[in-house]
Amino acid sequence: MSDSEPTAGTIRFRNKEGTMDAVALLWRGLCDKPKTLRKYITHDAVLAEPDREVYSPRTEPTLKEYLEDSYEPWTAYKIHGDPDFVEVDMMASTVTYRVTAWRLKRGEMVATEGMCSSTFRQGPGGDWKCCVHHMAQF
């Protein structure tokens, strides 16, 4: 596989385009209600938050419990530069990128600078969903 940009019309090109769209949808969900976020993550997803907590179906609390009980949506985000894309196989990919995300706290926008790595897999209907999202704070 070449390190160059994928050629239009190839599977790798379509995978990259689908993954980049999925990143935007993932962040849309991270900035909205847990119900929205669940549309863009897999049933067995792992979410590693910048506070160093990790949530999955096997953690205590589970990812589902965390999203329902204590998840605070981001208010806004900005991805800096072009994410680095890696095609894992024909139905899975990972992107790594720098992000600034803000949360509204006590009437003030508080920024979090971090690096994210998000892994997606393509479902039978062709939709890309996140199965691992890790945000490490600077």
Rank of each mutant, 00 (worst) to 15 (best):
S2K: 02
P6M: 03
A8G: 06
G9A: 07
I11T: 06
F13W: 04
F13R: 01
K16E: 00
K16R: 14
K16D: 00
T19S: 08
M20G: 04
M20Y: 07
D21I: 10
A22D: 01
A24M: 05
L25W: 05
D32K: 15
P34D: 01
T36F: 06
L37Y: 00
K39N: 04
Y40F: 09
A48G: 14
E49H: 15
P50A: 12
R52K: 10
E53Q: 14
V54S: 15
V54D: 09
V54C: 14
P57H: 08
R58P: 09
T59F: 03
E60W: 15
T62M: 06
E68P: 15
D69N: 13
D69M: 14
S70D: 00
Y71Q: 03
Y71C: 06
E72A: 15
E72R: 15
P73T: 03
W74H: 14
A76Q: 11
H80L: 13
V86P: 01
E87W: 05
V88N: 12
M91W: 04
T94H: 08
V95W: 00
T96Q: 13
T96G: 14
T96Y: 07
Y97N: 05
Y97K: 11
Y97C: 12
R98G: 07
A101F: 04
R103Y: 02
L104K: 12
R106I: 07
G107H: 09
M109K: 14
A111Q: 05
T112L: 10
M115N: 11
M115F: 07
C116D: 12
S117H: 09
R121H: 04
R121K: 08
Q122V: 05
P124C: 09
G126Y: 01
G126F: 00
D127P: 05
C130D: 01
C130W: 00
